[in-house]
Simulated assay, not measured.
Amino acid sequence: MNKLEVQSLPLKEVIADIANGLKTNYRHDCGEYIVEIPAAWGEGSIKGINFDGGLGLLIYKCTFHTDMEISFTVNQTHPLKFLFCLEGNLLHHFEQDEQQHSLQRYQNIIVASKGHNGHVLHFKKDVFTEIYSLEIDRCKFKARISCELEKTKPNLRQIFEDEQASNSFYYNGLYSLVLGEIFDEMKSQNYDHLVKILYLESQSYRMLVQQLIQYDDDSDDNSETKILRKSEAHAIKEAVEIMKLELDSLNSLNSVAQRVGLSSKKFQSGFRHFFGKSANEYLQSLRLSLAQDLLINTNDSIQEIKDKVGFSSQSYFTELFKKMYHNTPSNYRKEHRKNRGNN
């Protein structure tokens, strides 16, 4: 395993230490510090940028040829870190604690070390890893929000108020769909220097806001989380593919929810979020759309079509088809074939 030592702050010096450990140079682009991974070590880049008020952003987009450990061992209070795993996976542990925390795709952690105890990140060999890390100097940041912090919920206040790092802090969750959309936006931006720096700062604050909303949601022990997670959005897409492939044999949407790892409540809320309808309504629309295509483009009987799209009752199939297309299946077929013949 290769190891890189980072013994400096702020992020300019962090990138400089990483570049030095990789035996290469870094470049400076209007407040953004970038080190390209040399081919001998792997590929990709690590970027860092500091904003006013104690907020900074590190972006890792890299693949290493061997297992790589990056140790942050500066002899002072370390930043509060919000890490989000977009691709690949990562292991984290505190410098003086060998217990490792795994960070998988779609997961995020909030982590703060005790005293001057550092952080160690372990990147796996030949795995493309994309990590966004918000870095917050709690002394500077708390000075900006001291009044608001006094009035906020205890579970949110505890994240920021320990600026002397008297205690360690660790939280692990699945980041929200909204956060996933923020990351997608950030990856697609191509602004020039003036807009770029302002854009990155605004997006960093959006990331922080959404993470705090999500943490508050996760901290509510009285009910299931309300915010749709990115991993849950991925599960909804899997469910749609299952529905399409198994239209003729699908008997229970609860079984589909179980197969993709969602509760019934999250399964239904996911479909309403993406499609504006319940999972059952979406399934019916898939079935009726396929029935429409089969009526026009095949010689299958109405009975055969009804079976192929998964309806057990002929009358129910006719009722739903008429409701959507304002005609019975047989008359729909006759009209469309007549129109086709006239053309």
Score class of each variant (00 low, 15 high):
residue 141 F to P: 04
residue 232 E to F: 01
residue 279 A to L: 01
residue 24 T to V: 03
residue 255 S to G: 08
residue 75 N to F: 07
residue 107 Q to D: 12
residue 281 E to K: 06
residue 341 G to F: 13
residue 78 H to C: 05
residue 4 L to H: 13
residue 281 E to Q: 08
residue 249 S to D: 09
residue 324 M to N: 02
residue 26 Y to P: 01
residue 8 S to N: 15
residue 247 L to F: 04
residue 189 Q to M: 15
residue 236 I to G: 04
residue 162 D to W: 00
residue 209 V to E: 08
residue 237 K to C: 08
residue 186 M to K: 11
residue 207 M to Y: 11
residue 293 D to K: 07
residue 118 G to M: 12
residue 98 E to L: 05
residue 10 P to Q: 11
residue 57 L to G: 13
residue 118 G to Y: 12
residue 104 Q to Y: 13
residue 240 V to K: 08
residue 141 F to G: 04
residue 287 R to A: 03
residue 225 T to E: 13
residue 168 S to E: 07
residue 1 M to H: 14
residue 308 K to N: 10
residue 195 V to L: 12
residue 239 A to C: 04
residue 236 I to W: 05
residue 16 A to I: 07
residue 34 I to L: 02
residue 96 Q to I: 08
residue 121 L to Y: 10
residue 205 Y to G: 08
residue 236 I to V: 11
residue 118 G to V: 14
residue 335 E to P: 00
residue 196 K to C: 10
residue 260 V to G: 11
residue 284 Q to I: 00
residue 230 K to A: 13
residue 236 I to M: 06
residue 188 S to H: 10
residue 178 V to E: 12
residue 319 E to H: 10
residue 12 K to Y: 09
residue 11 L to N: 13
residue 321 F to N: 06
residue 242 I to S: 08
residue 297 N to T: 10
residue 35 V to I: 11
residue 142 K to C: 09
residue 150 E to R: 01
residue 51 F to D: 15
residue 183 F to D: 08
residue 185 E to M: 11
residue 33 Y to S: 07
residue 341 G to L: 12
residue 244 K to F: 04
residue 149 L to R: 00
residue 177 L to I: 02
residue 321 F to I: 06
residue 270 G to V: 13
residue 89 N to M: 04
residue 22 L to P: 06
residue 218 D to G: 04
residue 174 L to F: 01
residue 340 R to F: 11
residue 181 E to T: 06
residue 253 L to R: 01
residue 300 D to W: 09
residue 103 L to G: 06
residue 325 Y to H: 07
residue 226 K to G: 07
residue 191 Y to A: 15
residue 260 V to C: 12
residue 96 Q to P: 00
residue 167 N to V: 02
residue 170 Y to A: 04
residue 237 K to W: 10
residue 288 L to M: 03
residue 269 S to C: 10
residue 240 V to N: 06
residue 139 C to H: 00
residue 80 L to K: 05
residue 244 K to I: 08
residue 246 E to I: 00
residue 272 R to S: 09
residue 52 D to I: 09
residue 275 F to V: 10
residue 109 I to H: 01
residue 230 K to Q: 14
residue 243 M to I: 11
residue 126 D to F: 03
residue 281 E to C: 03
residue 52 D to L: 14
residue 125 K to Q: 11
residue 5 E to L: 15
residue 86 L to F: 12
residue 227 I to M: 14
residue 220 D to N: 14
residue 132 Y to T: 05
residue 10 P to F: 07
residue 304 E to I: 09
residue 23 K to I: 04
residue 225 T to D: 08
residue 335 E to K: 12
residue 50 N to Y: 15
residue 168 S to Y: 05
residue 21 G to E: 02
residue 156 L to Q: 05
residue 340 R to K: 12
residue 79 P to K: 13
residue 21 G to T: 01
residue 239 A to F: 01
residue 260 V to S: 12
residue 140 K to P: 00
residue 211 Q to D: 03
residue 17 D to I: 03
residue 295 L to C: 03
residue 137 D to A: 01
residue 334 K to D: 09
residue 207 M to S: 10
residue 257 A to I: 12
residue 341 G to Q: 11
